[in-house]
Design a protein around this nucleic acid. Structure first.
Lengths: 128, 128
DNA sequence: CCGGATCCTACATGATACTG
DNA sequence: CAGTATCATGTAGGATCCGG
Protein backbone atom coordinates (compact mmCIF):
# COMPACT_ATOMS: atom_id res chain seq x y z
CA UNK A 1 0.00 0.00 0.00
CA UNK A 2 1.57 3.21 -1.04
CA UNK A 3 -0.67 5.11 1.32
CA UNK A 4 -0.60 4.66 5.04
CA UNK A 5 -1.07 1.03 5.94
CA UNK A 6 -3.96 1.80 8.17
CA UNK A 7 -5.99 3.36 5.41
CA UNK A 8 -7.40 1.79 2.32
CA UNK A 9 -7.58 3.45 -1.07
CA UNK A 10 -10.50 5.59 0.00
CA UNK A 11 -8.80 6.96 3.08
CA UNK A 12 -11.10 5.02 5.36
CA UNK A 13 -9.75 3.11 8.28
CA UNK A 14 -9.24 -0.57 7.67
CA UNK A 15 -10.51 -1.59 11.07
CA UNK A 16 -11.70 -5.05 10.15
CA UNK A 17 -9.06 -7.81 10.23
CA UNK A 18 -10.94 -9.73 7.57
CA UNK A 19 -10.89 -6.78 5.22
CA UNK A 20 -7.30 -6.05 6.13
CA UNK A 21 -6.43 -9.58 5.05
CA UNK A 22 -8.41 -9.35 1.85
CA UNK A 23 -6.92 -5.97 1.12
CA UNK A 24 -3.40 -7.36 1.28
CA UNK A 25 -4.04 -10.38 -0.93
CA UNK A 26 -6.78 -8.77 -2.98
CA UNK A 27 -6.85 -6.88 -6.21
CA UNK A 28 -6.11 -8.29 -9.60
CA UNK A 29 -2.53 -9.44 -9.14
CA UNK A 30 -1.40 -9.69 -5.54
CA UNK A 31 -2.74 -13.15 -4.78
CA UNK A 32 -1.09 -14.47 -7.94
CA UNK A 33 2.22 -12.88 -7.02
CA UNK A 34 2.08 -14.42 -3.56
CA UNK A 35 1.39 -17.81 -5.16
CA UNK A 36 4.41 -17.44 -7.40
CA UNK A 37 6.66 -16.52 -4.50
CA UNK A 38 5.27 -19.38 -2.43
CA UNK A 39 8.03 -21.70 -3.58
CA UNK A 40 10.24 -19.72 -1.18
CA UNK A 41 12.85 -19.09 -3.80
CA UNK A 42 13.76 -15.52 -4.75
CA UNK A 43 12.21 -14.36 -8.00
CA UNK A 44 13.33 -11.60 -10.30
CA UNK A 45 10.98 -8.92 -11.45
CA UNK A 46 11.13 -10.19 -15.00
CA UNK A 47 10.53 -13.74 -13.89
CA UNK A 48 7.33 -12.81 -12.08
CA UNK A 49 6.22 -10.77 -15.04
CA UNK A 50 6.72 -13.66 -17.40
CA UNK A 51 4.71 -16.01 -15.21
CA UNK A 52 1.86 -13.55 -14.92
CA UNK A 53 1.76 -13.11 -18.65
CA UNK A 54 -0.04 -9.88 -19.26
CA UNK A 55 0.65 -7.58 -16.36
CA UNK A 56 2.00 -4.13 -17.14
CA UNK A 57 5.17 -2.74 -15.61
CA UNK A 58 3.11 -0.22 -13.72
CA UNK A 59 0.87 -2.75 -12.08
CA UNK A 60 3.71 -5.15 -11.31
CA UNK A 61 5.77 -2.50 -9.58
CA UNK A 62 2.77 -1.18 -7.72
CA UNK A 63 1.63 -4.60 -6.55
CA UNK A 64 5.11 -5.54 -5.39
CA UNK A 65 5.43 -2.27 -3.50
CA UNK A 66 2.12 -2.80 -1.78
CA UNK A 67 3.13 -6.29 -0.73
CA UNK A 68 6.45 -4.97 0.52
CA UNK A 69 4.76 -2.17 2.45
CA UNK A 70 2.47 -4.72 4.04
CA UNK A 71 5.50 -6.73 5.14
CA UNK A 72 4.70 -9.71 2.96
CA UNK A 73 7.78 -9.68 0.73
CA UNK A 74 11.37 -8.51 0.77
CA UNK A 75 12.99 -6.59 -2.03
CA UNK A 76 16.69 -7.15 -2.59
CA UNK A 77 18.52 -4.98 -5.06
CA UNK A 78 21.86 -5.97 -6.57
CA UNK A 79 23.81 -3.10 -8.03
CA UNK A 80 24.83 -4.82 -11.20
CA UNK A 81 24.57 -3.95 -14.85
CA UNK A 82 21.98 -4.71 -15.97
CA UNK A 83 20.18 -4.12 -12.68
CA UNK A 84 18.85 -7.11 -10.78
CA UNK A 85 16.15 -7.14 -8.15
CA UNK A 86 14.86 -10.16 -6.34
CA UNK A 87 11.73 -10.62 -4.30
CA UNK A 88 10.99 -13.28 -1.73
CA UNK A 89 8.42 -13.93 0.97
CA UNK A 90 9.01 -12.72 4.49
CA UNK A 91 7.97 -14.87 7.44
CA UNK A 92 4.72 -12.92 7.57
CA UNK A 93 4.32 -13.50 3.88
CA UNK A 94 4.78 -17.22 4.31
CA UNK A 95 2.09 -17.18 6.96
CA UNK A 96 -0.60 -16.11 4.50
CA UNK A 97 0.08 -18.95 2.08
CA UNK A 98 -1.91 -21.59 4.01
CA UNK A 99 -4.80 -19.17 3.98
CA UNK A 100 -4.56 -18.82 0.22
CA UNK A 101 -4.40 -22.59 -0.07
CA UNK A 102 -7.62 -22.90 1.88
CA UNK A 103 -9.32 -20.23 -0.16
CA UNK A 104 -8.27 -22.13 -3.25
CA UNK A 105 -9.67 -25.38 -1.95
CA UNK A 106 -12.94 -23.76 -0.97
CA UNK A 107 -13.16 -21.96 -4.28
CA UNK A 108 -12.53 -25.16 -6.22
CA UNK A 109 -15.34 -26.93 -4.44
CA UNK A 110 -17.71 -24.07 -5.10
CA UNK A 111 -16.68 -23.75 -8.72
CA UNK A 112 -17.26 -27.42 -9.34
CA UNK A 113 -20.86 -26.95 -8.31
CA UNK A 114 -21.31 -24.73 -11.33
CA UNK A 115 -20.91 -26.86 -14.39
CA UNK A 116 -19.96 -23.91 -16.53
CA UNK A 117 -16.88 -23.15 -14.44
CA UNK A 118 -14.11 -25.67 -14.94
CA UNK A 119 -10.71 -24.16 -15.60
CA UNK A 120 -8.30 -22.96 -12.96
CA UNK A 121 -5.67 -20.32 -13.27
CA UNK A 122 -2.18 -21.58 -13.88
CA UNK A 123 -0.49 -19.73 -11.05
CA UNK A 124 -2.92 -20.84 -8.39
CA UNK A 125 -1.52 -22.84 -5.52
CA UNK A 126 -4.42 -25.18 -5.89
CA UNK A 127 -3.10 -26.62 -9.11
CA UNK A 128 -0.01 -27.99 -7.40
CA UNK B 1 -23.39 -11.74 -8.85
CA UNK B 2 -26.05 -10.45 -11.09
CA UNK B 3 -24.01 -11.38 -14.12
CA UNK B 4 -23.12 -14.91 -15.01
CA UNK B 5 -21.39 -16.60 -12.12
CA UNK B 6 -18.41 -17.50 -14.20
CA UNK B 7 -17.61 -13.92 -15.01
CA UNK B 8 -16.55 -11.18 -12.71
CA UNK B 9 -17.55 -7.55 -13.00
CA UNK B 10 -15.18 -7.05 -15.88
CA UNK B 11 -16.53 -9.87 -17.97
CA UNK B 12 -13.33 -11.80 -17.50
CA UNK B 13 -13.36 -15.43 -16.57
CA UNK B 14 -12.87 -16.07 -12.90
CA UNK B 15 -10.69 -19.10 -13.41
CA UNK B 16 -8.78 -18.85 -10.16
CA UNK B 17 -10.42 -20.46 -7.12
CA UNK B 18 -8.67 -18.02 -4.81
CA UNK B 19 -10.07 -15.06 -6.69
CA UNK B 20 -13.45 -16.73 -6.92
CA UNK B 21 -13.45 -17.01 -3.14
CA UNK B 22 -12.34 -13.42 -2.63
CA UNK B 23 -14.87 -12.24 -5.17
CA UNK B 24 -17.71 -13.82 -3.21
CA UNK B 25 -16.69 -12.48 0.19
CA UNK B 26 -15.03 -9.33 -1.13
CA UNK B 27 -16.21 -5.82 -1.70
CA UNK B 28 -17.19 -3.37 0.93
CA UNK B 29 -20.12 -5.16 2.54
CA UNK B 30 -20.33 -8.84 1.72
CA UNK B 31 -17.92 -10.13 4.36
CA UNK B 32 -19.74 -8.11 7.00
CA UNK B 33 -23.09 -9.46 5.89
CA UNK B 34 -21.78 -13.02 6.06
CA UNK B 35 -20.50 -12.32 9.56
CA UNK B 36 -23.90 -11.06 10.63
CA UNK B 37 -25.66 -14.10 9.21
CA UNK B 38 -23.11 -16.41 10.81
CA UNK B 39 -25.27 -16.81 13.89
CA UNK B 40 -27.41 -19.07 11.69
CA UNK B 41 -30.57 -17.26 12.54
CA UNK B 42 -32.64 -15.67 9.79
CA UNK B 43 -32.23 -11.92 9.56
CA UNK B 44 -34.54 -9.36 8.08
CA UNK B 45 -33.35 -6.86 5.54
CA UNK B 46 -33.91 -4.01 7.97
CA UNK B 47 -32.09 -5.87 10.73
CA UNK B 48 -28.98 -6.32 8.62
CA UNK B 49 -29.15 -2.72 7.57
CA UNK B 50 -29.28 -1.54 11.15
CA UNK B 51 -26.27 -3.61 12.13
CA UNK B 52 -24.24 -2.34 9.21
CA UNK B 53 -25.08 1.20 10.09
CA UNK B 54 -24.44 3.25 7.01
CA UNK B 55 -25.14 1.04 4.03
CA UNK B 56 -27.57 2.33 1.44
CA UNK B 57 -30.60 0.39 0.28
CA UNK B 58 -29.05 -0.01 -3.12
CA UNK B 59 -25.85 -1.54 -1.86
CA UNK B 60 -27.63 -3.76 0.63
CA UNK B 61 -29.95 -5.19 -2.00
CA UNK B 62 -27.10 -5.64 -4.45
CA UNK B 63 -24.82 -7.35 -1.96
CA UNK B 64 -27.55 -9.69 -0.82
CA UNK B 65 -28.38 -10.58 -4.41
CA UNK B 66 -24.78 -11.32 -5.19
CA UNK B 67 -24.51 -13.58 -2.16
CA UNK B 68 -27.73 -15.30 -3.15
CA UNK B 69 -26.55 -15.78 -6.73
CA UNK B 70 -23.34 -17.30 -5.40
CA UNK B 71 -25.38 -19.75 -3.35
CA UNK B 72 -24.23 -18.39 -0.01
CA UNK B 73 -27.57 -17.22 1.34
CA UNK B 74 -31.26 -17.97 0.97
CA UNK B 75 -33.88 -15.32 0.51
CA UNK B 76 -37.32 -16.04 1.93
CA UNK B 77 -40.15 -13.69 1.17
CA UNK B 78 -43.30 -13.58 3.27
CA UNK B 79 -46.27 -12.00 1.56
CA UNK B 80 -47.45 -9.97 4.47
CA UNK B 81 -48.29 -6.35 4.91
CA UNK B 82 -45.87 -4.77 5.44
CA UNK B 83 -43.65 -7.07 3.38
CA UNK B 84 -41.11 -9.22 5.20
CA UNK B 85 -37.99 -10.79 3.77
CA UNK B 86 -35.53 -12.97 5.64
CA UNK B 87 -32.05 -14.06 4.74
CA UNK B 88 -30.06 -16.95 6.13
CA UNK B 89 -26.91 -18.86 5.28
CA UNK B 90 -27.06 -21.91 3.05
CA UNK B 91 -24.85 -24.90 3.77
CA UNK B 92 -22.35 -23.51 1.30
CA UNK B 93 -22.60 -20.18 3.04
CA UNK B 94 -21.85 -21.76 6.39
CA UNK B 95 -18.78 -23.38 4.89
CA UNK B 96 -17.11 -20.06 4.23
CA UNK B 97 -17.42 -18.85 7.81
CA UNK B 98 -14.39 -20.78 9.12
CA UNK B 99 -12.39 -19.22 6.32
CA UNK B 100 -13.50 -15.76 7.38
CA UNK B 101 -12.61 -16.61 10.97
CA UNK B 102 -9.11 -17.56 9.90
CA UNK B 103 -8.73 -14.44 7.83
CA UNK B 104 -9.81 -12.45 10.85
CA UNK B 105 -7.26 -14.15 13.08
CA UNK B 106 -4.48 -13.65 10.59
CA UNK B 107 -5.50 -10.05 10.03
CA UNK B 108 -5.54 -9.36 13.76
CA UNK B 109 -2.03 -10.67 14.18
CA UNK B 110 -0.79 -8.57 11.31
CA UNK B 111 -2.59 -5.46 12.47
CA UNK B 112 -1.08 -5.77 15.92
CA UNK B 113 2.35 -5.53 14.34
CA UNK B 114 1.51 -2.02 13.26
CA UNK B 115 1.17 0.07 16.35
CA UNK B 116 -1.00 2.61 14.56
CA UNK B 117 -3.67 0.03 13.81
CA UNK B 118 -5.62 -0.99 16.85
CA UNK B 119 -9.36 -0.96 16.46
CA UNK B 120 -11.43 -3.74 15.00
CA UNK B 121 -14.76 -3.52 13.26
CA UNK B 122 -17.78 -4.33 15.35
CA UNK B 123 -19.37 -6.85 13.00
CA UNK B 124 -16.23 -8.93 12.57
CA UNK B 125 -16.39 -12.52 13.69
CA UNK B 126 -13.06 -12.02 15.36
CA UNK B 127 -14.56 -9.88 18.09
CA UNK B 128 -16.70 -12.73 19.34
C1' DC C 1 -40.69 -2.63 4.11
C1' DC C 2 -38.23 -3.81 0.30
C1' DG C 3 -36.01 -3.11 -3.92
C1' DG C 4 -35.68 -1.27 -8.76
C1' DA C 5 -33.91 2.60 -11.92
C1' DT C 6 -30.85 6.63 -12.61
C1' DC C 7 -27.23 9.39 -12.37
C1' DC C 8 -22.70 10.52 -10.40
C1' DT C 9 -17.90 10.37 -8.55
C1' DA C 10 -13.59 8.38 -7.02
C1' DC C 11 -10.24 5.22 -7.95
C1' DA C 12 -8.13 0.61 -9.60
C1' DT C 13 -6.33 -0.77 -13.65
C1' DG C 14 -4.16 -0.16 -18.04
C1' DA C 15 -1.47 2.10 -22.25
C1' DT C 16 2.36 4.47 -23.41
C1' DA C 17 6.62 6.77 -23.25
C1' DC C 18 10.60 7.69 -20.73
C1' DT C 19 14.91 7.40 -17.32
C1' DG C 20 19.37 5.12 -15.21
C1' DC D 1 16.37 -4.82 -16.43
C1' DA D 2 13.71 -2.25 -13.28
C1' DG D 3 11.02 1.48 -12.27
C1' DT D 4 8.55 6.25 -12.98
C1' DA D 5 5.33 9.62 -14.96
C1' DT D 6 1.36 10.76 -17.40
C1' DC D 7 -2.95 10.13 -19.30
C1' DA D 8 -7.16 7.28 -20.33
C1' DT D 9 -11.05 4.27 -19.01
C1' DG D 10 -14.24 1.10 -16.84
C1' DT D 11 -16.80 0.34 -12.82
C1' DA D 12 -17.72 -0.21 -7.73
C1' DG D 13 -19.94 2.23 -4.57
C1' DG D 14 -23.18 5.83 -3.36
C1' DA D 15 -27.23 9.39 -3.59
C1' DT D 16 -31.72 9.92 -4.74
C1' DC D 17 -36.30 9.10 -6.44
C1' DC D 18 -39.98 6.05 -7.36
C1' DG D 19 -43.21 1.82 -7.04
C1' DG D 20 -45.62 -2.22 -5.11
Amino acid sequence: MSKSKKENFRGEELLCPIKYCMDIAGGKWKSSILCILADEKPHRNSNIKRKLGNITNTMLTQSLQQLEDAGMITRTQYNEVPPRVEYSLTEDGKSIIPLLVQMGKWGSIQMEKHSEIRSYCKDCLNTK
